[in-house]
């Protein structure tokens, strides 16, 4: 599914290097967790996967199903099946949520050579996914994310993910700002999407999320490199001992 090879990247404007040789492979159907202390480059990695222009890849490559995606813009990546659940989903006044969802869904279908959805079929899918995520339909009448609480925004991200049916889901600190009930709803939503053809890259600070979304692999990112890889027990160990021991070992 995803192969990141010796990826180096810096902030395009000021040149600060953030990623310093990331190597990571995520297999089809795998849930890979990325953990790491603040400032280790976790969010940067998620933005670079989604194609944000603020970062510049200086070395290495990102292969998605065997093909480099570095030359693709964010919309092309999305249409090919990459989805980023934002840590801070943006509020966009004036853009109706339903218009946005329909535009995005049909743009992706069109890019893949599929027919656009009819309005009744689209509505049916939105209603069904919204019910699963306990999203009040009135919320969807508002402009995109405007006036949503932190938890509502995160649920709305998972709703978008469910509707767009991506192949590779990158989740950037989806647990931040969620209380335990909201966390369970979000995790249930994610688990419902698990399949042999869909992979997840779950970025988080805390082990807590991984109690609900159980990962196959856990990777520790530190100063722009993966310094340790293990299974879900590694997350528990980090929770108990903190990052310092692993950082010392790597050094």
């Amino acid at each position: 599914m995803l192969e990141i090879k010796n990826l180096h990247a810096r902030v395009a404007e000021e040149g600060t290097e953030i990623l310093r040789g990331v190597d990571l492979t995520v297999k089809d159907g795998e849930i890979a967790a990325i953990m790491g202390p603040n400032g280790s480059g976790k969010s940067t990695l998620s933005y670079i996967l989604a194609g944000r222009e603020d970062y510049e890849v200086t070395e290495g490559d990102i292969l998605y199903n065997g093909e480099s995606i570095l030359e693709m813009d964010p919309a092309e990546r999305a249409a090919s099946g990459i989805f980023l659940a934002f840590q801070y989903p943006l509020e966009i006044p004036g853009v109706a949520t339903m218009t946005f969802l329909k535009t995005a869904l049909n743009a992706q279908r069109k890019a893949r050579g599929e027919d656009e959805l009819t309005t009744p079929e689209f509505m049916r899918r939105v209603k069904s996914s919204a019910a699963d995520l306990q999203i009040n339909p009135d919320m969807l009448k508002r402009p995109l994310n405007v006036g949503f609480s932190g938890g509502e925004k995160k649920r709305a991200e998972i709703l978008q993910m469910a509707l767009l049916e991506p192949k590779l889901c990158v989740m950037d600190e989806t647990d931040s700002g969620l209380d335990i009930d909201a966390l369970k709803i979000v995790a249930d939503g994610v688990n419902a999407l698990r399949s042999a053809e869909r992979s997840f890259l779950v970025i988080t600070h805390y082990q807590r999320l991984l109690d609900y979304i159980v990962p196959d692999t856990v990777h520790v990112l530190y100063k722009g490199r993966i310094i340790k890889t293990g299974d879900k027990d590694l997350a528990l160990k980090l929770e108990n001992e903190g990052y310092s021991q692993i950082i010392d070992e790597a050094a």
């Binding site: 989604a50 194609g51 944000r52 222009e53 813009d73 964010p74 919309a75 990546r77 999305a78 249409a79 989805f83 980023l84 934002f86 989903p89 943006l90 966009i92 006044p93 004036g94 853009v95 218009t99 946005f100 535009t103 995005a104 869904l105 743009a107 992706q108 890019a111 402009p143 978008q160 767009l164």
Partner: peptide, 20 residues
Amino acid sequence: FYLMSRGIPADKARALLIKA
């Protein structure tokens, strides 16, 4: 970026934002 990351092409995303 947010709109494009959902698969909306650049020109269409711009049009949506101008309209908004």
